[in-house]
Design a protein around this nucleic acid. Structure first.
Lengths: 195, 195
DNA sequence: GTCAGAAATGTAATAACATAACATTCTGGT
DNA sequence: ACCAGAATGTTATGTTATTACATTTCTGAC
């Protein structure tokens, strides 16, 4: 259960795409560890995420409105962290400026439905790779390419839960974020200074 | 290795002290799990933290300047999360307003020296309970009283590290924050709505 | 169909968090 | 006393997020 793709180059995106300058449009869906950067059909990837979202919202009786769907779609454009104000800019046009509350409300909905994750250490958001089930995930955040791998290791979350409970703590939510370098950026790690 | 005290009531603090209205000044130092809210000498607690900081900085050849010491002291006033702008207000007087960079630079220094932890999910800071050794800690953050228990379970951090590495990820930093209710607030949990 | 209430969205203003850029002061070594 | 580097002061601004209230859209009861 994980998802970690090399996205297309996004000239307007977070300023770190240059690290993976070799990667371009791709063809099949794969999990990270086995992913050939050259073989990922991201259009299909977006489509699957949106279909799944439609399905889950219908099933739950909540409304994936055009706006909410649009925000989710933007978040899935790349496998990189997306900032709220990026979304505001991306959704705005010459004749219509989207205001912060609009985007934050959509994000709130998507978070509630488990369709996206918030990355606390970056004030950003990414699509959830397996939204069908509630879960406590672990996020591996690459400071090289800005991409995020979502892990869902039940052993880890159970261990953390157990440890917290052993101190009498009642757990609502786990926030587990690992910062470092992904397999694609680590080899060139010497070139990737701290960000 | 942990620290979790009931602080004095802080009328100017994060607006959640009412939950522990019964707790007041105390007398001995104890770890959380065994702590009687009525028996914690917080003056001694602050003094120890500052002494330890002085010692470590001297040992490392870095300067715990009056300003930095003052910021650390303010952070240790209570065992609750402290915000940067709280510090700005607390350090400002009628005739001198402390500006954001001043505080942020002091925080940066204290973070570098491992004397405080940043809490990503709250944009806040707390004193580190065992600054002598570099460590990856787990923070238990109570939404009832705003207090934070710092765990340092090497098994957990090693497990997370191992899991990340098994996905080819090179770990720089772990951020592990558990949100929920501490033992003192959990019993009254029904009264403590989400914050 | 239409109407009332709820849900969603729009808008303006501002709060909360953080940094860049440059000036000044302090500190320790010579 | 002088210098270099560290630390702090100051101004301005960038970034992230929320409050409060107006308007529109949707849904279900009739």
């Amino acid at each position: 259960m994980l998802c970690y793709y090399i996205s297309d180059i996004n000239p307007a995106g977070p300023a770190n795409a240059s690290v993976i300058l070799g990667a371009k449009r791709m063809s099949t869906t794969q999990t990270m560890s086995t992913l050939d950067p050259l073989t990922h059909d991201h259009d299909q990837c977006i489509a699957r995420a949106l279909d799944e979202a439609e399905r889950l919202c219908a099933q739950r009786g909540v409304r994936l409105t055009p706006l909410r769907r649009r925000v989710l779609e933007e978040i899935w454009q790349h496998h990189e962290v997306v900032k709220a104000y990026d979304l505001i800019h991306r959704l705005s046009t010459e004749d219509h400026t989207v205001k912060p509350p609009t985007v934050y409300r959509a994000l709130e909905f998507l978070l509630e439905q488990g369709l996206i994750h918030r990355i606390e250490s970056l004030n950003g958001y990414i699509g959830c790779s397996h939204p069908a089930l509630a879960h406590q995930c672990q996020l591996l955040i690459c400071r090289g390419c800005g991409q995020v791998e979502e892990l869902d290791d039940p052993t880890l979350s159970a261990a953390l839960q157990r440890e917290a409970e052993s101190h009498g703590f009642r757990v609502d939510q786990q926030i587990v974020e690992v910062r470092g370098l992904c397999p694609h950026c680590a080899p060139a790690g010497a070139d990737v200074s701290a960000r």
